[in-house]
């Protein structure tokens, strides 16, 4: 038996793509996501309806072959609008997570690497951010920035700053004690260089997992904010806007809200499965969302 073959599979280093090749849960999530994204693209490109086509002869029709998700109170095709809405919701969520991920990682890595008073200050700020209920923090920010898709993205980002910062801080502090970092410091490398070149690649996997897990909640937040009317504003068809619209005639046409929400849950299920699979394979210790 060769030495390499004796090492258990899980101990070998592997990237996210390698995980995808082996982890069933991650495969399942990726399948849901890719197929749904393809479906969304197909509907956006080839749907016979425009998301804003109003057809007053076909108001609030229940699901049928012609309109698989039915029509809303303007006679618009719900499935077409869901596809367009999903695109916007995903963009908002990805944008927010990228912002929050970058800011949180920079803050957390700085705190973890520098330590001392800077660590104390950043930790306090992060703890404070983490003490605000998600929607409360987002609401305050929406008031400040005005409603709209970009503000929602910023709000999601702000809500996620502490998650990334906590994670990045603890892992950076751990990595700092490792030999490869000590070696780099002894060789006189600058702190930013060590952080970017030596530490970041080693802590990237859990951050990525946090990112994919956060995407799902980002979509929920967008939907929630827009749902109460303080997020993305109509006529932009985000999923939250559509659900807010659907709640107004919920008794007469429950399918609008129900099926839109089901689509949201389906996409998030894909994201969560992918995130779970990645987490199990890359870092089983991560349990926060």
């Amino acid at each position: 038996m060769s030495a390499a073959a004796a090492i258990p599979r899980s101990a070998r280093r592997r990237g996210p793509l390698g995980v995808l090749a082996r982890n069933r849960v991650a495969q399942c999530g990726a399948f849901i996501l890719v197929s749904t994204l393809l479906l969304i693209a197909g509907i956006v490109l080839f749907s016979p309806y425009d998301p804003n086509d109003k057809d007053y002869m076909a108001i609030l029709q229940p699901p049928s072959l012609e309109h698989p998700f039915g029509t809303d109170s303007f006679g618009q095709d719900v499935l077409t609008r869901v596809a367009h809405g999903a695109r916007i919701s995903l963009l908002v969520s990805v944008g927010g997570l990228v912002l929050g991920g970058l800011a949180g990682t920079v803050l957390g890595m700085t705190a973890g690497y520098r330590g001392g008073w800077l660590d104390a200050v950043i930790t306090r700020i992060v703890e404070l951010l983490y003490s605000f209920p998600t929607y409360v923090l987002a609401l305050c920010l929406m008031l400040l920035l005005g409603y709209g898709a970009s503000s929602v993205a910023l709000a999601i980002g702000l809500v996620y700053v502490p998650n990334f910062a906590r994670l990045a801080r603890s892992m950076t502090a751990q990595a700092k004690a490792e030999n490869y970092v000590t070696a780099a410091r002894l060789m006189g490398q600058s702190a930013p260089r060590i952080l970017a070149r030596e530490i970041l690649p080693n802590i990237a996997a859990p951050l990525l997992v946090q990112f994919s897990a956060g995407l799902g909640f980002g979509i929920i937040m967008e939907a929630g904010l827009s749902f109460v009317g303080l997020g993305v504003q109509p006529p932009t068809p985000s999923l939250g806007v559509m659900m807010a619209d659907g709640k107004d005639y919920f008794q007469n046409g429950p399918w609008v809200l129900t099926l839109t929400g089901l689509s949201v849950a389906w996409i998030i299920l894909g994201l969560n499965l992918l995130g779970d699979g990645l987490r199990d394979a890359l870092d089983p210790r991560l349990r926060d969302r």
């Binding site: 929920i220 939907a223 929630g224 749902f227 429950p254 809200l257 929400g261 849950a265 998030i268």
Partner: peptide
């Protein structure tokens, strides 16, 4: 994992239904 994927306010409407 299925319940985690559901927006709570949407679940509210489903429960109402």
């Amino acid at each position: 994992i299925v319940t985690i994927s559901m927006p709570d306010f949407w679940l509210g409407y489903v429960l109402v239904l």
